[in-house]
Amino acid sequence: MSRIVSDVKYSLIAYFRNKGALFWTLIFPIILFLLMGYLFGGQSGPLELYYQDSDGSQLSHSFVGALNQTGVFDLRDGAGMDLAQSLKDGKISAYIVIPSGFEKSAMAAKAGSNVSNAGLEVYYDKSKSTSGIVISVIEQVVNGMNMALAGARNVIPVTSQDVTTSSMSFVAFLLPGIIGMTIMSSAVNGTVSTTARNKATGVFRKLATTPISRLEWNAAKIINQTIILMLSISISLIVAWLVFGIVPNINAVSVLMIIFGSAVFSGLGMLITTFVKDVDSAENAASAITFPLMFVSGSFISVDSMPWFLRYLADVSPLTYLNNGLRSSMITGNYGDAVMNLIIVAILGIILFVVGVSLLKWKED
């Protein structure tokens, strides 16, 4: 145990002296998270809102005018457009339908008749972080018109429909993906770089003459990388809270996902250096493997939205199960799914780590 502790200690000292490693593990994930969060998950200025006025009445025009006066929306007339298809295609994030008979229904309700089904219909993509704002503002405008028309009576009903399968904002979806990507990149690249250079410089031949075993040395590297990852993830979580107000749930399952995820990709890194001896070639091979996995494993977009042939790649990617487990444990609270993904990652981590250690022959290098 003392040999493992000593190795971890000096590995951490070397890490904090390496400015490049500090940037790629601590700073770059934050930059990527903020960049993608603001580009795809946030929005500044007026929110684009399409509408279809099938009534064409004075009341419907007044309602559109009231929405415009809030200054929240950039209103777009969707007459003649297939807004439902545009929403499904992701070209727009929300639209509102003013049905035929809207004014007649409101006047009948004002006179004391039952409210008909000719109320406003709002369709929106709940995965967009602005959806809550859209619904809230529309309801406030409608409440104001209800007050003006009939005191506090509900003259104009509003029906809002979520037409997406996602129940989380893009930024909340993105955070576990960035964490998973960081675990993979740090573990694979760190293991490949250290192992390949130790082979090339003869460090392993010298280590073979010392009391430390291959298992102890690799265990020390797993612990070292886990400590670094915990630091990197802690910074990411603080930024997510300060900038986007996201407070993920940190629990035993998410912590174990990080530990076993580190083991999975450290083992993968050892396998790469077993078959690729040259330092530069090993690092290029690591990049060739990890770079595509970032995009097919649900780090940035849902696997369900990918073409069918990419879903097959996602099914065999360890990063997919790591990302899913982190989202389920940290964001959605689906602990049954989180535990299932943890079991898969743990099994893969044990297998890859044992195989990697077995194939790493110090004396033969």
Score class of each variant (00 low, 15 high):
294 M>Q: 12
294 M>N: 11
294 M>L: 14
296 V>L: 15
296 V>Y: 09
297 S>V: 03
297 S>G: 04
298 G>M: 03
298 G>Q: 02
298 G>T: 03
299 S>N: 09
300 F>A: 00
300 F>N: 00
301 I>W: 10
301 I>K: 01
301 I>P: 00
301 I>F: 11
301 I>S: 06
301 I>M: 06
302 S>L: 02
302 S>M: 06
302 S>E: 08
303 V>S: 02
303 V>T: 11
304 D>R: 12
304 D>G: 13
304 D>I: 03
305 S>V: 06
305 S>N: 11
305 S>I: 03
306 M>K: 07
306 M>L: 14
306 M>Y: 09
307 P>Q: 02
307 P>R: 03
307 P>I: 12
308 W>M: 13
308 W>S: 14
309 F>H: 14
309 F>I: 11
310 L>K: 11
310 L>E: 13
310 L>I: 13
311 R>L: 09
311 R>G: 07
311 R>K: 15
311 R>W: 08
312 Y>M: 12
312 Y>T: 09
313 L>G: 13
313 L>H: 08
315 D>C: 06
316 V>Q: 12
316 V>T: 14
316 V>K: 11
316 V>C: 12
316 V>H: 12
316 V>W: 10
316 V>P: 08
317 S>F: 03
317 S>W: 04
317 S>M: 07
318 P>E: 11
318 P>F: 08
318 P>T: 10
319 L>R: 03
319 L>G: 06
320 T>N: 04
320 T>M: 04
321 Y>R: 10
321 Y>D: 07
321 Y>Q: 10
321 Y>C: 05
322 L>A: 11
323 N>K: 03
323 N>A: 04
324 N>K: 15
324 N>R: 15
326 L>Y: 07
326 L>F: 08
327 R>D: 00
327 R>Q: 01
328 S>N: 13
328 S>E: 13
329 S>R: 04
329 S>Q: 06
330 M>E: 02
330 M>T: 08
331 I>N: 02
331 I>T: 02
332 T>D: 06
333 G>E: 08
333 G>P: 05
334 N>C: 03
334 N>Q: 13
335 Y>P: 00
335 Y>M: 15
335 Y>L: 12
336 G>A: 04
336 G>I: 02
336 G>K: 09
338 A>W: 05
338 A>S: 05
338 A>M: 09
338 A>R: 03
339 V>Q: 14
339 V>S: 08
340 M>K: 11
340 M>W: 07
341 N>A: 05
342 L>H: 08
342 L>R: 06
343 I>V: 15
343 I>E: 07
343 I>W: 07
344 I>W: 09
345 V>G: 01
345 V>L: 05
345 V>M: 02
346 A>P: 00
346 A>V: 13
346 A>F: 12
346 A>L: 14
346 A>M: 15
347 I>L: 15
348 L>C: 14
348 L>W: 04
348 L>G: 15
348 L>E: 07
349 G>T: 09
349 G>L: 02
350 I>T: 09
350 I>G: 02
351 I>F: 12
351 I>M: 10
351 I>A: 12
351 I>P: 01
352 L>G: 02
352 L>K: 00
352 L>P: 04
353 F>P: 01
354 V>D: 01
354 V>C: 05
354 V>S: 09
354 V>L: 12
